[in-house]
Computed example of a mutant assay.
Amino acid sequence: MTKLSVVLAAAAFAVAGLQAAPALASAPPVPVTAAPRPAGDNVEINVTGQGSVQATPDVMRLNVGVEVRRDTASEAFAAARTAAGRLTAALVGAGVAEGDLRTNDLSLGAEYDKYPKAVGYRASQGLQALVRDLSTADAVVDAAAGVGDDVRFHGITFEVSKAPALVKEARAAAFQDARAKAEQYAALAGYQLGRVLKIEEEGDGGAPRFAYAADKASIEPGQGTITVTVRVLYGLTERDD
C-alpha cells in the first residue's frame, strides 16, 4: 500500500468513528416535575386572641399606720406601739377580722438639727387591713381616722376575690377568638384548620386593681376588666373538597 492509500484509510476510519459517536453520547431527556404542594402540618398559622370579662371588686385593702415623734428612741418606739394598738382595736371594732390585719411597716429613726447630735426620734408602724364587706368600708376608714393625729393613711385598693374563675372565663374567650381568626385565614388561603401546635399566654391574667375615687362622698370601688391574650399556632391541612 502506498503512503497516500494509508492516509485515506485512516481518514475513512476516523469518519466512521465520528458517525458512530452520537449513538454512544446521547441520553434520554430528564422529566421536569413541579414541587408538591405542602401538606399536613407543614403549613402553619400563628394568631392572637383576646378575651375580656367585666369584674366587680368585692374586697378592699386599706393601708394605714401611725407615726410619732419623741425625745428618745425608746419613747418613740413605745409610743408607736401604743398608737398601733389603738388603731388595731379601732379597725377590729369596725368589723375587720383580726386575721385580716397584718403589720407591713415598722421604722425608727433619729432627727438631727446638726449631725451627729440627735434632737428627736421618729417611729412608725403600718398596718394593712383586708375589708371583705365593702358595705363597711366607710365605717372602717372613719374608725381609723378617729384614732387621732398619729394616724397616717397610705391609700386603698380594691380587688376581686373570685378572680381565678373570671380569668378562666376570659381565657376561654381569648382561645375562641384565636380559633375563629385562624379558621377564617385558613379558608382564605385554601386550607382547613388542623391541630394546635403551640399555645402561649401573654401576661399572667391576674386580677385588676381598682383605685379609690377621691372625689366621691363615699368609697366607690367601681368596675374593672380582666383581659387575657393568647397566641396559638395551628397547623393547616388540605381541604376535603
Rank of each mutant, 00 (worst) to 15 (best):
N42F: 10
A94R: 13
Q54T: 11
A79D: 14
A73K: 08
I45Q: 12
D100W: 00
G95N: 07
E67P: 01
A79S: 14
A55W: 01
T56Q: 14
A79M: 02
T56K: 12
V43F: 15
V53G: 04
V66D: 03
D41G: 07
R70D: 14
T88V: 11
T48R: 15
A90W: 02
Q50N: 15
V53R: 05
G85C: 08
N42K: 15
G49Q: 03
A89G: 13
D100P: 00
A89I: 00
T88R: 14
Q50A: 15
A78I: 11
A78S: 12
V66F: 05
G95M: 08
G93L: 04
L91N: 01
A79F: 05
S107M: 03
A97Y: 00
G85A: 05
A55Q: 07
N42L: 12
L87I: 11
E98P: 02
D41R: 03
V43S: 15
V66G: 07
E67D: 01
P57I: 15
R81E: 11
S74H: 01
N46S: 13
A78Q: 14
A97I: 01
A76I: 03
G95Q: 04
I45V: 14
G49L: 07
F77V: 10
A97N: 06
A55F: 09
A84N: 10
N63V: 04
R86W: 05
A80Q: 01
L101K: 05
V53P: 04
A73N: 05
A79L: 05
E98L: 14
T56E: 13
R81W: 05
P57D: 00
V47E: 13
S52C: 06
I45R: 10
L91D: 00
D100T: 00
T72D: 01
E75W: 03
L91V: 04
E75R: 06
N63D: 12
V47S: 12
Q50F: 12
V92T: 15
R102I: 00
T56R: 09
E44I: 13
T103E: 00
N104V: 10
D58Q: 09
N42R: 15
L101D: 08
S52I: 13
R81V: 11
T48H: 08
D41E: 10
T72H: 10
L91Q: 01
V47D: 08
V53A: 08
L106V: 15
N46G: 08
S107Q: 10
G51I: 03
S74M: 07
N63W: 02
I45L: 09
N104T: 13
F77C: 00
A97H: 10
A76P: 00
V43T: 14
R61Q: 13
G95I: 11
A97T: 01
V53S: 06
G95T: 06
L62F: 14
G93N: 11
P57F: 09
R69F: 12
A94D: 07
N104G: 03
G49D: 01
L106G: 04
V68N: 09
P57Y: 09
D41N: 09
D71F: 10
N46L: 11
A90F: 06
